[in-house]
C-alpha cells in the first residue's frame, strides 16, 4: 500500500516538473523547469488548498535517494580526459579552493547577520 502511495505521489511531483518545464520553455525563463516546478509546488502548498500529505511520502522518498539521481550526470566527466592533465588539475584545484572560500564567506556572514538580529536560540544550535 505504501509503495502505491509513493508511486502516485512521485507522479504528482512529475506533473509539477512537467508544468515547470513547460512554463520555463514557453516564457524563455533563465530558471530551469525543475526549479520553476519547485516554486509552483511551494506556492500550491502555501495556499493551503493543496495538502502537504498529498506529496509528503513521495517527496521524502525522492529526497532520500537524491544523490543517486546525480550519478549519470557526474559520470559525464569521463568525456573530458583533459581534466586529468597538469593544467586540468590546476583548474580543479582552483575551483575547489574558490569553493572553500565561498563556503567560509557564506557561513561566516550569515551567522554574523543572525547574531545582530537578536536571534532565537534554536536555529543557532
Amino acid at each position: 500500500m505504501k509503495i502505491f502511495v509513493i508511486t502516485i505521489q512521485i507522479g504528482i511531483l512529475y506533473l509539477f516538473h512537467m508544468l515547470g518545464v513547460w512554463i520555463s520553455e514557453s516564457l524563455h525563463l533563465f530558471i530551469p523547469g525543475s526549479v520553476v516546478g519547485m516554486i509552483l509546488l511551494f506556492i500550491a502548498l502555501s495556499t493551503g488548498k493543496f495538502k502537504s500529505k498529498w506529496v509528503s511520502s513521495g517527496s521524502t522518498f525522492m529526497l532520500a535517494y537524491l544523490p543517486l539521481f546525480f550519478i549519470p550526470v557526474t559520470a559525464g566527466i569521463i568525456k573530458y580526459p583533459e581534466f586529468f592533465t597538469v593544467k586540468g588539475l590546476l583548474l580543479i584545484a582552483s575551483t575547489a579552493v574558490s569553493t572553500f572560500l565561498a563556503v567560509a564567506a557564506t557561513g561566516w556572514s550569515s551567522e554574523r547577520l543572525v547574531s545582530k538580529k537578536k536571534a532565537s536560540v534554536n536555529a543557532l544550535d
Binding site: 512521485i10 511531483l13 512529475y14 509539477f16 516538473h17 515547470g20 518545464v21 523547469g33 525543475s34 526549479v35 516546478g37 519547485m38 516554486i39 509546488l41 511551494f42 502548498l45 502555501s46 502537504s52 506529496v55 509528503s56 513521495g58 517527496s59 521524502t60 525522492m62 529526497l63 535517494y65 537524491l66 539521481f69 546525480f70 550526470v73 557564506t106 557561513g107 556572514s109 550569515s110 551567522e111 547577520l113 543572525v114 538580529k117 532565537s120 536555529a123
Partner: peptide, 30 residues
C-alpha cells in the same frame, strides 16, 4: 528522476517556511 526530486525540495521548504521568512536577511546576505 532528478527533475521531480528537485520539485520535491518544496516539501521540506514548506515545512520550514516560518523559519526561512524569519531568517530571510541572513539567507540573502550569506
Amino acid at each position: 528522476l532528478l527533475g521531480p526530486a528537485v520539485v520535491a525540495l518544496a516539501y521540506p521548504l514548506y515545512n520550514q517556511r516560518h523559519i526561512i521568512m524569519k531568517y530571510s536577511f541572513p539567507i540573502i546576505g550569506g
